[in-house]
Amino acid sequence: MSERLERRYRRLLRLYPKAYRRERGAEILATLLDAAESGHPRPLRREVAALVVSAMRVRFGAVAGSPGQVWLSALRVAVLVLIAHATAQSAVHAIRAVGAEILMVRTYPLTALGHPAAALAGVAALMAIGRGRYRLGVALVGLAFAAAQWAMSWLPIEARPALGEFWQLPLAAAVSVPLVVCRPASGRRAMAWLLAIPLTAAVLPTAFDEVGWGLYLPLAVAAGCLAWSALDARAAIVGAVLLIGASMSTLSYVLPGWVDAMSGENPVLLSAYLAAAAVSVCVGAVLVRLRART
């Protein structure tokens, strides 16, 4: 029985990161076995659930600290996700333009070069902010936005805010303000943030699905973030920022001159975005406060 239990606990301990396991693994295992052999053993299910949650928190870097530090860290992640999403969208445009030129399906104007330029500036911004160089990061976000606008210059300027891809970079710049002022610590693996580009392309809307079911993706992603906030309170705040970004383009439809273009479901969608953003912010704020207690 004891050997079987030990094997089971050893398997579960693999959920912790290797470095943590090396430091703590033997000690945690000893405590688990001591507790199991005691007169008052904890229910196995409870021990397993606590181990899984604790391991996930260690592995996915839930930040400990004052509420202010956790909020700054959450805003930093939100900025990185917004930049990754904008970069993914520019990359999608660039790939589409290059593909069409190669296949000679369609000829693009010179301004289409703005798409790869925006994607490159986005990659540079992602790395700068990932490394904690916030001023440089915001400057690169500005550059990426200018390049993306140049690429979209075929569309009248007043029409662009209604595009799903318009708001990520301005919002990233706005959310970066507290980062530039307070300079939160950066993570050790800044390069890993580049993986967020294909990830956001996969789970958030891009130019390919602008008016289709892609509009519901931010809600699905925010719901996922809300679930993830059980492990890391920052996730709810990141989800809220993503929803605010999605709301802004939908809100632009409601502006004068765009009512005609508004499809029937948009007011409902906008309300859903805003309601979900409000819920996410509240959940995030409560969780950050709860976790900050000793």
Binding site: E27, T31, S38, A50
Partner: peptide
């Protein structure tokens, strides 16, 4: 670790029954 778990349970008259994962967190 286990000493802390059992002493905390004793002092709290059985109210605080820490699971091992929670204790180490």
């Amino acid at each position: 670790g286990y000493g802390i778990m059992s002493r905390a349970e004793e002092l709290s008259r059985g109210r605080v029954k820490l699971a091992t994962g929670t204790l180490y967190a």
